[in-house]
Design a protein around this nucleic acid. Structure first.
Lengths: 126, 126
DNA sequence: TTGACATGAAACCTTTTGGTTTCATATAAT
DNA sequence: ATTATATGAAACCAAAAGGTTTCATGTCAA
């Protein structure tokens, strides 16, 4: 993450379709800003600002290589979203809850929230 | 859903912390607007507008009972979010992907998107 | 060293968002 | 019939979001 003073809200970060597109684009390979912005119908600066928001949310990491800055996906913050979503799985499927917990409990830190921890899924101060 | 002319973007809908709180509140029991808004530090009208946005996204359903309108959670649209998230699971965990697919393929319609379908997870026209 | 390229910062603008207060309408209670 | 309750619609407002253009800076290439 870049600056902790800027709010790193992952829900907010993925709300914008352009930013979701950015994430899917940066999944496999890292890319410099100019190349990335070539795929979007907006200015390079606008794309740069979206990347900044994603970086603040911890969803992308930047790496300086010579005169260019390359961005790549950092999927870890999506775990918060997964945790939030896990709570609601019980509403559309109950019978698979136990197995789901087993699977997800092994790949995360084991604290799948089956009772919504903050009522809204934010981690205000931890 | 209320009016199809209003955009039913689930990503947008859950971006707001108040609306996430609303969802968690309406999970178990349906509630009328006045009771709901009693839990929030804003006007009843403001809460009502949030509920409208959630309804447009299909995340809550309203039911008129006498002079009051009761709202309750409708979790189905969260499946889109789950599908979107499923694509990124491969980035933080590869070895459990097969089992994950098995589990989720059984509880959804079976079309877990392992290749992002629209590049950004939106269902523009389907 | 000089010029081209890659990028972020700054200033600015327009639209959307999240909130307010006021008003209209429908139902319930007396 | 009259009054109180429950709610949404409307008009309005400030702040945030998403975009632009311009400018400054750092790095690579001649």
């Amino acid at each position: 993450m870049a600056d902790p003073s800027r709010k790193p809200d992952v829900f907010q970060a993925i709300a914008d379709p352009t930013r979701r597109q950015l994430l899917s684009m940066l999944g496999e390979r890292e890319m410099p800003v100019t190349v990335i912005s070539g795929h979007f119908p907006m200015s390079r600066t606008a794309v740069s600002k979206h990347l900044r928001i994603l970086a603040d949310a911890g969803l992308v990491k930047e790496r300086k290589v010579g005169r260019e800055t390359r961005y790549r996906l950092e999927p870890e913050p999506l775990l918060e979203l997964k945790r939030w979503l896990a709570y609601y799985e019980r509403y559309w499927d109950n019978k698979l809850l136990a197995l789901q917990r087993f699977v997800e409990g092994d790949e995360t830190d084991g604290t799948i929230a089956l009772v919504a921890p903050e009522e809204d899924g934010t981690r205000t101060a931890e």
